[in-house]
Design a protein around this nucleic acid. Structure first.
Lengths: 394, 394
DNA sequence: GAACTTCGTCCGATGCATGGACAAACTTCC
DNA sequence: GGAAGTTTGTCCATGCATCGGACGAAGTTC
C-alpha cells in the first residue's frame, strides 16, 4: 500500500480495513483470530474492520471451522458475487464488455465487431457495449474497467494516442464516467492483462511480465505488485523495438521491428511467401498442430525471435515470471518453449536458471484484467504475494 | 513511503515525521507554515515533528525569512553535517571508504588497493578500510553503506556471490555490523550508484537507470523512487546479455556478451588487435580526445553496441532518464551521444523522443550512493520527485 | 497609528489501535 | 460426567495520533 502524502488516523483505519479485506480475500475461509495473527492486528481491530465489511456486504460469515482446543472459529469469506465488475476489452477487431465477479469469473458478456470504427464512432460503440453489459448485471456494480489500445494515462483515464481508433488525448475515463454515472478506470490493454494474471493467476509474486502476441506484440509489467506504466505510459511497448536492422519494413516506418518477425502477421506473411497461399491464423495453428514441419519451422523461428528480444529483459530486470498470452499462445508449448529457450540462451545462466515462461491460461485476460483494475482501485487493494511470508511474519 | 503491514498510530506519526524531514531536506530553507502547506499537514503537526527533529539535531532554525504581509517565517534546514555517513566502494582494484555528509559531500576518504584479495582476506581488508574511515569522522555517524560487487541480497545484507572476491553467501552486513557496532547496509555497487544519482543528482524523478561501464558493464535501476533489485537481486546485470551471437568468447563461457563488445576491456582489446600495441584506458582516452580517427571509431562503435542493448529497455520500461557512468564516461559526450543515438534508433520514436542519456557528473558515485543508502534507510526517507507536483498539490 | 495578514503555539475534541478482562464454546483429562 | 484448560470474539478504559479553532507575536499596508 503506497502512501505518498500525509498519514492520518482515518487513513490508518482505511489501510487496516484494506489489509483485513485482502487477507480474507486471499485466505478465505478464515477466522477473525487467524486474520489477526497474520496481519498482527489485534482481534479487536480485526473485528471492527470485519464488521464494516460485513455491513457493506463484501464480507460474510460462513459457518464454523474445526476447533483446535477452544471455541470453534467463525469463518469469513468474500462472496465472489458480492460486487460485480464491468471489464471491457477494446480489441483490434471486437469490443467486448463482460460482467465479472470478484474472483474473475465471467457472468455475462457482450461482443461487438469493431471493424474500422474510429474517432467518435468508436467511442459511441464502446459506450454502447458497456451499457448493454450493464443490463446483464444482476447485482451491485463496483465500476467499469477498460483495457484500451495505445498509449494510456491510467491515472487520468486519458488515451494519449491510439492509432487504430484515431484517438488522441481522449479523456475516455471521464467521458464514460459521466455518461454512466459509475466509477471508470482505464489502462493500456497489455497493462490490464498483466494485472489480471497477477490478481487472478495461479501464483502471485511481486513482479510479473506478460507478453501479448497477436497481430501486434506488446507487454505489460507488474512491478512490486502494481502495474508499471513507465515515465510516459509506454512501458511494455516492445513491438516496435528493432531486432533485425536489415529486416522487413514495418508499418511504423522502420525496418525489422519485433512485430515484423514475431507477430501473427509476420508468421502469416512468411507462410504466404513460402507457400504462395494466405492462410488464417486458425489454419496455421491447425497445420502446426498436425505437425507440418514447414509451418512448424516458421512458427518456432518467430518464437525464437520473440525470445531473443525478451532475453535482454531477464538481465535488466531479473523478473522471474513471464507469461505468454494472446492469439499466438494457441501454438502452445512448442512455441512457448522456443521463446523460453531463445530468451535464456541470451541471458546469464545464473539469472536465467530460475526464470519461467508460462502460457497464459486465463481466457479473455484483458476483460478479466480490466475488472481486476476496478477491483483493486475501488477497494484500494494492493494484493500481496501469495504463499510468500508476509512482512510481519518474518 | 511503502507500508506493507499493519498501520498504527505510532507509524502514522513516524510517517509524517519522515514526510516533514524530507520536505525540509528538499526545500530548505523553509518555514513550518510552508511545510504544512506542501504536505497538507496542520501547522500543529508540523511543529511537533520539527520539534522532535530539532531535538535530535537533524533539523535546526536558521533565521527569519521575508514577510509576505504578516509575521516573518522562521526558516528551517537540515544541516549538511548533522549526521555523517560512511560510504564504501568495494571496487575492482581499490576499496574506498569515505566520510560523507547528508548532502553527498565527501569529508574524508581512505583508499586501499584491493588487488586479488579474496575470501576472508578481502573481508578483513574491507573492515580495515571502514575502521580507518571511521577515525576521520568528526561527528555522529549514522551508519555504514557498502556497495559490493556481484549478486547482493540488500534486505539481509548478504553477498550471494561475488566471483572476483570468491564470496558466496557471505553475510557481509551482519558481520560488519557486529564488528563495528554500527548500522550497516549493503547493496550491489550499481544499485547504490543509481541511488546516489537519484538522491544527490541534479534532478529527481520516480524512475532512473544508471549504466556503469568500465571493465565490466552493469546497470542499476530506481523504480518508483526505490532501488529495484528484481526477484533474485540480479536486476541490472546486463553485461552478460548476448548481443553478438557469433562474437568473441566471454569469460562467462558464452560468445558475444555485451561486455565483449562495449566494455573498457573490449575497447582496449580491439585497439591492441588493430595496432598491435596495448594501451591503458587513460592513454586511449587521451588519443580519443586528440581526435585519432581510428581510436575514435573503435570507441564510438563500442558506444553504439551499448546503445543498441539499451534500446530494448526504452520500449520495455519507458524510463526517460538514463545516466551513463563509470570509467568509459571519460570518453565524454561523443561516446554518450553514440550510445544515445544507437539506443534511440532501436526504439519507437514516440517513446525515444523524450528519453535522455546523460553523463554521470557525481564523482565517486558508488561511495556517495552507498552513503545515500544509509541515509534513506536509517532516516526512513523515500525522497519524492523534485519539482514535480506533489500528490497533494494536484 | 489602526486594520489586516501571517506565523507559530496552545488546548480541547475526535478517532484510532491497544491490551486486559470477560463470556461463550469447545477439547482434554481425570 | 465434570473440572480444567484453550481458543474465539466482544467490551471497555487508556494512550496516542491528528485536527480545528483560538490566541498572541510579529510583521505589512494604508
Amino acid at each position: 500500500m503506497d502512501q505518498q502524502g500525509k498519514a492520518t488516523n482515518r487513513e490508518t483505519r482505511e489501510h487496516n480495513d484494506r489489509l483485513v479485506l485482502a487477507t480474507v480475500y486471499d485466505d478465505s475461509p478464515v477466522s477473525r483470530a487467524d486474520v489477526a495473527r497474520r496481519t498482527r492486528l489485534t482481534r479487536t481491530t480485526v473485528s471492527d474492520a470485519v464488521e464494516r465489511w460485513v455491513a457493506a456486504g463484501i464480507c460474510r460469515e460462513v459457518g464454523r471451522g474445526p476447533s483446535t482446543g477452544g471455541k470453534a472459529p467463525i469463518l469469513l469469506e468474500v462472496p465472489a458475487d458480492a460486487r460485480l465488475l464491468i471489464g471491457v476489452d477494446l480489441g483490434d477487431q471486437v469490443f467486448t464488455a463482460a460482467v465479472v465477479n470478484l474472483r474473475g469469473g465471467i457472468r455475462g458478456r457482450v461482443d461487438a465487431p469493431s471493424g474500422n470504427a474510429s474517432g467518435r464512432g468508436a467511442l459511441e460503440l464502446a459506450i454502447d457495449v458497456i451499457e448493454r453489459a450493464l443490463q446483464l448485471a444482476d447485482g451491485p456494480v463496483l465500476g467499469v474497467g477498460i483495457g484500451a489500445p495505445g498509449l494510456v494515462d491510467a491515472t487520468a483515464g486519458t488515451v494519449i494516442r491510439a492509432v487504430t481508433r484515431d484517438w488522441r488525448m481522449l479523456p475516455l475515463g471521464p467521458i464514460v464516467e459521466e455518461r454512466l454515472g459509475l466509477a471508470v478506470h482505464v489502462a493500456n490493454d497489455c497493462q490490464v492483462a498483466v494485472l489480471g494474471e497477477h490478481v487472478f493467476g495461479p501464483t502471485r509474486g511481486p513482479n510479473l511480465i506478460m507478453v501479448k502476441a497477436g497481430r501486434g506484440i506488446g507487454a505489460g509489467l507488474v512491478i512490486n505488485g502494481a502495474p508499471f506504466p513507465g515515465d510516459g505510459y509506454g512501458a511494455g511497448e516492445i513491438g516496435h523495438t528493432v531486432v533485425a536492422p536489415d529486416g522487413r519494413m514495418c508499418s511504423c516506418g522502420r525496418r525489422g521491428c519485433l512485430e515484423t518477425v514475431a507477430s501473427a502477421t509476420a508468421i502469416l506473411d512468411e507462410l504466404a511467401d513460402r507457400f504462395g497461399r494466405r492462410v488464417s491464423l486458425e489454419e496455421a495453428v491447425e497445420q502446426f498442430r498436425t505437425g507440418d514441419p514447414r509451418v512448424r519451422e516458421v512458427v518456432l523461428e518467430a518464437g525464437r525471435q520473440l525470445g531473443t528480444a525478451l532475453g535482454g529483459l531477464i538481465g535488466a530486470l531479473h523478473v522471474r515470471r513471464f507469461v505468454l498470452a494472446g492469439p499466438l499462445a494457441a501454438f502452445g508449448e512448442p512455441w512457448s518453449e522456443a521463446v523460453a529457450a531463445a530468451a535464456k540462451a541470451r541471458a546469464l545462466d545464473a539469472l536465467a536458471a530460475d526464470t519461467t515462461f508460462e502460457l497464459g491460461l486465463i481466457e479473455d485476460v484483458v476483460v478479466v484484467g480490466a475488472s481486476a483494475l476496478v477491483m483493486t482501485r475501488e477497494l484500494g487493494l494492493t494484493l500481496a504475494p501469495l504463499g510468500a511470508p508476509r512482512p510481519h511474519e518474518r
